[in-house]
């Protein structure tokens, strides 16, 4: 049996990598990918807990998270598409519309 702490540690590492990616990368799409990575880290801990607690709820949750992630990816990518049309760049620093 895999020790539960190790899986959770993996989850934490992946999550932190995701956080770093969001804060350090400047390409919007890569930032988006980092977010997906964070979601996966969370999924991993859900499965771990579901297994170690003999419960199915975590697995059901993952099902929903994946659906939401899919929806999010679809909408987010289309937003990026439409911003790209006007800004002609994927550099997030150029997306400073929030300033005004």
């Amino acid at each position: 049996m895999i020790p539960i702490e190790h899986i959770l540690l993996l989850s934490a590492v992946l999550f932190t990598i995701g956080v770093l990616g969001v804060m350090l990368r400047r390409n919007v799409i890569v930032i988006f990918m980092s977010i997906e990575l964070m979601l996966n880290a969370v999924n991993l801990s859900f499965v771990t807990f579901a297994r170690s607690m003999d419960s199915m709820t975590g697995v059901i949750f993952i099902f929903f998270i994946i659906v939401v992630a899919a929806a999010e990816a679809v909408v987010g990518l289309s937003i990026i598409l439409s911003i790209f049309r006007t800004r002609k760049t994927l550099n997030i620093d150029e997306y400073n519309l929030l300033k005004w």
């Binding site: 956080v19 969001v22 804060m23 997030i92 620093d93 997306y95 400073n96 300033k99 005004w100």
Partner: peptide, 14 residues
């Protein structure tokens, strides 16, 4: 802080 740089917002969020 309101400099329009999205990543700064992310930083503060973190």
């Amino acid at each position: 802080f309101q400099n329009g740089l999205t990543q700064n917002y992310a930083l503060i969020f973190t």
